[in-house]
Amino acid sequence: MIEISAVTKTYNGKVKAVNQLSLSIEDGKIVGFIGPNGAGKTTTLKMMTGILDCDEGYIRLNGHDIGTNPLLAKKQFGFVPDNPDVFLRLKGIEYLNLMADIYEVDSLERKSRITELAEAFSMTAALNDKILSYSHGMRQKIVVMGVLIHQPSIWILDEPLTGLDPQSSYVLKEMMRKHAQSGKTVFFSTHVLEVAEKLCDQVAIINRGEILYFGTLEELKGRYNQMSLEEIFLEVTRHG
């Protein structure tokens, strides 16, 4: 369960990146976060993960406030940032083991999860190499694996499918579906409307730091008869 209540973020006291944003995402849902460049998506995700502080409002993850109880709140989610170039000098296995230690996953469990995830993402042969030697897509995969290793109940992903090959993209989407089906939450930002259409139970459309629409895609399509999703998105953001 994610609760975002009247959250505002202003940069340098002037630019309002997010303005009175509220969202309530229930368990068991995949929610797509859509908006044009500079709409406030990444700022919102950063506030949800404790990377940025909210100027106003609060964010609760499974009931834990990220501002007042950050350590417990951070254990509730796994975050995949948009730039996967983390700790390039470490080997893949070293990175995964570090993440497992930070999230206190015991040895036996981490070993079996690493094996499973590496097979699912075709990364078994790359674990012993430095992340520096990985392609962009492989770096994306190792970051996703680092997040999934502690099986967080909430997944927060910033453009998670960018750079993934079709097979890994399919695997990740399947994992997202399974995760939501098991009663947990997935919240991810994307520019690809087709992905949102196929994958999401709900979408939140943001522009200029404000939520313009939050609900199911069917409901949205119902409002704009005979328009494609792309046209609907342009229409909503133009008037937002």
């Binding site: 296995i93 070293e94 995964l96 083991n97 497992a100 230690d101 996953v105 015991d106 040895s107 981490r110 070993k111 690493i114 094996t115 078994t124 042969a125 790359a126 674990l127 012993n128 190499d129 430095k130 520096l132 030697s133 990985y134």
Partner: peptide, 19 residues
């Protein structure tokens, strides 16, 4: 950076995943 693409042996994996 050279990549060996060598699969970790069972023993190496156990050693590398020690908590």
């Amino acid at each position: 950076t050279a990549s060996s693409r060598k699969i970790l042996s069972e023993a190496n994996l156990t050693r590398s995943t020690r908590s």
